[in-house]
Amino acid sequence: MTTPLRGVRRAGSTALLAELADLDDVLALRAALERDRPVGVRELIAAARTLLVTYDPAVTGHDGLSRTLAERADALPAQGGAVTPSTDYDTLVVPVRYDGPDLADVAELTGLTVREVIERHTTPLYTVAFAGFAPGFGYLTGTDPVLRLPRRSEPRTAVPSGSVAVAGGFTGVYPRSSPGGWQLLGSTDAPLWQEDRTPPALLLPGRTVRFEETT
């Protein structure tokens, strides 16, 4: 049987990095570890093809935890697994003004009208697969297959805060102004990151999200 685990590397003295074939395998392994968390594991932080596992060195260690990860990975279904929505938070509704500078280009690339692009983007229920890039930035799965477009050939030096965008099969919302190459569909005023809030991020891994058109 082929294992989805491609390798496990040390990440400092209290963490290890599991490398997997793809996002489905990452999320399936994370879900399996969350359902039955190994003793000593502190955090499970997913990315597109890796899972960072931090642990208490007084309770467990790299070698034993590596063996546990291999066993859990070998027990995963062959098809991997979908993102498991979190039950800790209600579905987040994000109001969006579909006024993005790439909206017309996206319509042309997909062969849709602008109205059809908006409908395709507001219909799905999304799930935050993992966070990264910047504090508060979540990579959302569930994007309509027609809108799974590549990044722009020329990234922008400054994407406005609150921009709602698609690229590489994901939807994302820029929590602050930053460089970026995603296709910008619109904008939102939702406070995605507030340091004085607990937790500070709205787009937490596992949370479900809907986009709702507003003016």
Rank of each mutant, 00 (worst) to 15 (best):
residue 122 T to D: 11
residue 160 P to Y: 12
residue 123 T to K: 12
residue 125 L to M: 03
residue 161 S to C: 14
residue 159 V to W: 12
residue 138 G to V: 03
residue 153 S to N: 06
residue 128 V to C: 09
residue 173 V to Q: 08
residue 156 R to E: 09
residue 141 T to M: 02
residue 171 T to V: 13
residue 132 G to Y: 06
residue 152 R to H: 13
residue 154 E to C: 12
residue 129 A to Y: 03
residue 125 L to D: 02
residue 134 A to K: 10
residue 155 P to F: 15
residue 130 F to G: 03
residue 148 R to L: 03
residue 160 P to M: 10
residue 126 Y to N: 01
residue 166 V to Q: 04
residue 173 V to G: 05
residue 138 G to D: 05
residue 148 R to Y: 05
residue 161 S to M: 12
residue 135 P to A: 11
residue 141 T to R: 00
residue 131 A to T: 10
residue 156 R to M: 11
residue 144 D to Q: 07
residue 155 P to W: 15
residue 140 L to A: 06
residue 160 P to L: 08
residue 153 S to Q: 08
residue 125 L to Q: 00
residue 151 R to S: 04
residue 132 G to V: 09
residue 125 L to P: 00
residue 158 A to C: 15
residue 124 P to F: 00
residue 168 G to N: 13
residue 148 R to D: 02
residue 172 G to H: 07
residue 147 L to F: 00
residue 152 R to V: 08
residue 143 T to F: 04
residue 149 L to T: 12
residue 146 V to A: 15
residue 160 P to T: 10
residue 170 F to D: 00
residue 133 F to K: 08
residue 128 V to L: 11
residue 154 E to G: 09
residue 134 A to S: 14
residue 163 S to H: 12
residue 142 G to V: 00
residue 133 F to V: 13
residue 136 G to L: 11
residue 126 Y to M: 00
residue 142 G to T: 00
residue 172 G to D: 04
residue 135 P to L: 08
residue 139 Y to K: 02
residue 127 T to R: 01
residue 145 P to K: 09
residue 167 A to G: 09
residue 151 R to C: 08
residue 128 V to A: 06
residue 143 T to P: 03
residue 167 A to V: 08
residue 167 A to C: 12
residue 132 G to M: 12
residue 158 A to N: 15
residue 130 F to K: 03
